[in-house]
Design a protein around this nucleic acid. Sequence first.
RNA 1: GGGCGAUUAGUUCAGUUGGCUAGAACGCACGGAUCACACCCGUGAGGUCACAGGUUCGAGUCCUGUAUCGCCCACCA
Length: 1054
Amino acid sequence: MTTELPKSFDPAVLEPIVRAAWESHRAFAADPSDPGEPYSIVIPPPNVTAALHLGHALNNTLQDILIRKHRMRGDNAVWLPGTDHAGIATQTVVEKRVFQEEGKRRTDFARDEFIGRIQAWKDDYEARITEQLKAMGCSCDWDRQAFTMDPPRAAAVREAFFRLFADGLIYRGKRLVNWDPATQTALADDEVEMEEIDGHFYYLRYPLADGSGHVTVATTRPETMLGDTAVAINPRDPRAADLRGQSVRLPIVGREIPIVEDNYVVMPVRFGGDDKDPKAVLATGFLKVTPAHDPNDHEIGRRHNLAVINVLAPDGTISDRHGWTDIGDAGFVLGQTREDARQAIVHWFKVNGLLEEIKPYRHSVGHSYRSHVAIEPYLSDQWYCKVTDPRLAGAALAAMAEDQRDGAKKDAAASSDHSPKSALRFHPARYARTFQTWHENIRDWCISRQLWWGHRIPVWSSPAGRVSPANFADPANVSIRAMDDAQFVCLRTHDDAAVAVLESAGFTQDPDVLDTWFSSALWPMSTLGWPDADAIADPRSALNVWNPTSVLCTAREIITLWVSRMVMFNLYFLNRLPFRDVFIHAMIQDGHGQKMSKSLGNGVDPMDIIHSHGADAMRFTLTGMATNTQDVRLPVDMVDPVSAETFTPHYITDSAGYTVAAPIQQAPSDPRRKMVSSYGVASGKAHATPDQPVARNTSAKFDFGRNLCNKLWNAGRFVMMSLANAPAPAGDPASTTQPARTTHPQSSTAPAPTNAAAPSTHPAPFTAPAPANAPAPTTLADRWILSRLARAVRDADEGLGAYRFDQYAKVCYDFFWRDFCDWYLEAIKPAMRDPASAPASAAVLATTLDQVLRLMHPAIPFITETLWSQLNSVRPIRGLVGIDAPPSELLIHARWPAPSSRWIDDSAETQWQRLQDIVGAIRNLRNEHKVEIKKRVKVAIAAPPDIAADLAVHIALIDLLATCDSSLSSASPSSTAARATAAGVELYVEGLVDESAEKQRLAKRREELTRAIAAMKARLDNPGYIAKAPPRLVEQSRAQLADAESELAKIPDA
RNA sequence: GGGCGAUUAGUUCAGUUGGCUAGAACGCACGGAUCACACCCGUGAGGUCACAGGUUCGAGUCCUGUAUCGCCCACCA
């Protein structure tokens, strides 16, 4: 039965079966009370704004590899899944959707009603994301799935806010914030994108108040002049002395404002300014100071005690209702947008003869990452978290690994195990610098957002009302602080009675919500039960077992947004790190080095790849791409929806200077084309019907993984067929290979059978007994493959330990395909026609496949799990002395291979390498002379006595692998024999008559040898080389020279 | 402006502390329906390691500079 595997594997059929098996066994469930070293990862919670993209696929594949490997090692491994509510992003998406579909704006709804809409969106996308992760094979503990706004996470937010508030680390500040006039909310610095803009420098004349003349200020934003409260000049400016104490009359408004001296002002070039500084070139030396609308001016205003006059409404229009009273003649701009006001004011200056000049100026301007409109520095009341406090940023800096601070030792330090395990380490180490610089220059964190979707700020205030702790039933859960002459009351938990007290005293709750990163910052704590009192008190609680987590896997773009804040909060609230390692993986770009994005249409949907190639194929390809670099490229193929042809898109530059994909004629307007990036987004439309082709981006790169899976499938099939007749283990095979795990499928606490037997530390494979009836391998092929296996296991482990997933993938690939399939399987085919007669080889074969499946399972879990169950049902002898292969019903719970250095066999590898060289040389000769594939040729091998003795034993292998009949001889070339040299022996293939081919080949070889001899001679003639190079290398060079010369001597002259 | 990367075969990438004739995969060329696999097998071609200096017996690797590309941070005069 078991040998009836289909010829090629079908992921669409197999993956759901394997998923069901894992689910029914509750294979991903973890329990903090399990023995085993804790190993935990929290998922970087994807935003519920959209379905997962390829970057997520990479991110989660790598995490799953780590989790699966550690689970197999017997560690108490848990992977905590969840999603992020992503305040601004999600609200914006839903607002846009509602407006498109219903023509309604957010303000047309009641707050709760609109939140309900967003909630529905969230439910939808959370489900999709979860399904995507499951389809990818992510072995998250789904019982612990979290959402940054669900009740447990809300409790964490309340507790954290309360503690920070009571400790004075949260304050209310009237500050300039990055205001997005479109969404009417404040943005964090990180949410602002800089864009280069072609703007202008406007030179405006401000008359001196005494009428004796004017000063000329230069500005890119003339409209803000309405809020000017000073003109500044550098004290070193030669004109400063004459103007000291003077003031100017602000045009339009008529406000009299002082001339102040401040070092911030850039000196114009003619007074000694730096001529390389474009500002100095353009500057007049007079700076208009608008404290309410420019961060630097705000600082100047503080230094000189200037008035702060806000002339804008929250929507970005000029307004006299938000702090501006002396409007003078400015009535004509009231109500205008920033852009219109700019034109109007410039026009006013022009007609009044006060506009001196306009010069073009290219500069960068902050834009909202959401609405893409220009950010307005805007004065408003916001809540701040005082991350500049030493207890936060300082603690984060102190937690860094010593050898990663100040860029010490660079990447070499990342993999060293010498520094204390308790420190925060980055992999690759260069990212430690990003983290350090951020904290050294950190500014207080604006945590309030003018949104509806998010954690409502748990503070009530009243300008007039007053309360005291005595008013509350539970004063310990109330924190009262006075700021700005008002009382602010923070409630620790949801408490209707306390709210009633506040409301009756005239208090109202702050309408704002918290920055989405506030809840994200608590993620490694809140997903594990904090702040539940029992969780904190119990040393065996999930919180105390799994926090600190083992590693955080993420992309570099959120080191400052997220990593930093988790470190600060975890240290502050729990006095320990949220994770020890931070692994920063590469970002996936398209084949042109551009980010994948919806607007470029170059994104690749993981679900498309799962459908076309299979989850394993996608995972393996991504694993191989996870190199140490900061970007990797994935050339994207697009599928034309009409012709169904695949092609590589080219790019054009649009009128705005942006590069855009130009893949398909009229692509953006073709409704079918839109489905490219909307798999799973435009619900129900993603699945193509046969008569309606759907364009889906893909990449030929995924063929790499698919080919590997297919190869593994067929190799597995072949091994299984071979072993079907092989000896089975003594005793009752069924009971040893089929542990009865299915008898307790509901028990999440039951560890895997293999792990249960293991101590809490790693299994000790060297002491594990081999099967009593395991025959000892004796053949060269067996010794060789076991030696290669031992190295592969060691190297794979090393790669994973250093977060070098590409190395892990390569080791698996090379060992499995090159060694196991290309050479080992070919070599043992004769023996496997009757495995019972070669029990040792059968045991080696079964053991090797067993280990290959274990080794590759973390990367390609579905196909390996499928083959594992097949191997279990064949029941061959598995395991050898030194190679522990304890049975397990499911591979996901099977024990991770441990390096078995006892099988590393240099002599076998040397001998095998010689065979490979000889076989390669004979195959080469055959090909050069166009010998038919099945024709056996006669080969005479002339070898020195010691090598000849070795070869005599294995001559049958040469005959098998090179399709020849070879004989060892002492060099008796017939005149017509084609010849070659390999591995120190000479080969003569009889009967190859194509003399021109042979001559060509020899001429080429002669040239190669001549070149090599010249290079060697030059090297050895260099006295410095002889004197300074290690003797080993000099010896090697001499030997190579001798070999090359002797081979050349034997080549007959043309 | 500050920082971090990258530049190696047609393409995507490896290349450990400097040391064999610089490797792999895909693609390409030639041969092959062989009883695991044509998503395969065998063989081969293909590289001035971005450029210019330097250190060294020896540089893809270390140093300096240049160019191009990318990312992060800062910056509305």
